[in-house]
């Protein structure tokens, strides 16, 4: 069995009386695509924010590559190789696509207290950035202002941003959300092309995406994980079916 990259134990976070995450135990193996699904309000976003470091848990522990990262803020986790894409597209809208990704490359290239050489002419930044854009299918759109990209392209750009930080684990928060069927098909193909190369935690509502991409699925309901298993196991799980109120999985 592959090595376990991310281990979460007893993760809890409350907002007043609401227990958004209520003692989550969760593991991600190196190399797998692990989907997290659950009905609306199950605490998925709260959960992923605690993984990325945007929210501090009330209790519990997050271990990444053997190291306790529970107390680390988001930018430090990112430096350790935990990249995150946002549910609502988060890019530098007033930068070109290439500048967006070059900045993510720069984040990986040590400190940025370099004041003189133009960053845009720095091949150490632009070359890996172009590669990441090619990878997500935006190679021809490098010089377009991010704000002027189509919605689907912006989502692809966000994946490129995450890729460019050379992460060991990518947290993808609903990458297919709000996409037309063509766009979402392209995104699913892109994510499929990452399988085996990257370890991915995929939070997603789109069941087509989840069942075609995931190696394993965890089901989050009312802040707890009620089941983890292969897509086939999850499909057959009675408790999961009940949680989804008989919806077809």
């Amino acid at each position: 069995m592959a090595e376990t990259l991310l281990v979460v134990r007893g993760l809890a976070k409350s907002f007043g009386a609401l227990r958004a995450t209520d003692g989550i135990d969760f593991e991600v193996r190196e190399g797998e695509t692990h989907a997290v699904i659950g009905p609306n309000g199950a605490g998925k976003t709260t959960f992923i924010k605690q993984l990325s470091g945007e929210l501090r848990p009330d209790a519990g522990q997050v271990r990444f590559a053997g190291e306790d990262i529970t107390a680390l803020p988001a930018h430090r986790r990112s430096r350790k190789g935990l990249a995150r894409s946002f549910q609502i597209t988060s890019i530098y809208r007033d930068f070109s696509a290439l500048d967006n990704v070059a900045l993510a490359v720069q984040a990986r290239a040590g400190h940025s207290f370099r004041f003189w050489r133009p960053a845009r002419e720095d091949i150490l930044l632009t070359q890996p950035a172009r590669q990441a854009l090619e990878k997500v299918g935006l190679g021809a759109r490098a010089d377009v202002l991010a704000a002027n990209l189509a919605h689907g392209e912006q989502r692809q750009l966000e994946i490129a941003l995450a890729l460019a930080t050379q992460p060991r684990l990518m947290l993808l928060d609903e990458p297919v959300a709000g996409m037309g069927s063509d766009e979402s098909q392209r995104m699913i193909e892109l994510l499929a092309s990452l399988k085996g190369e990257k370890t991915v935690v995929l939070v997603e509502h789109d069941m087509d995406a989840v069942f075609s991409l995931a190696d394993r699925i965890s089901v989050l309901v009312y802040g707890r994980i009620i089941a983890t298993g292969t897509p086939a196991e999850i499909r057959a799980n009675a408790e999961v079916r009940a949680a989804y109120l008989g919806e077809d999985l």
Partner: peptide, 10 residues
């Protein structure tokens, strides 16, 4: 331009 994004990439 986008501070949360900056934190997100490190």
């Amino acid at each position: 331009s986008n501070e949360p994004r900056s934190r997100g990439i490190g």
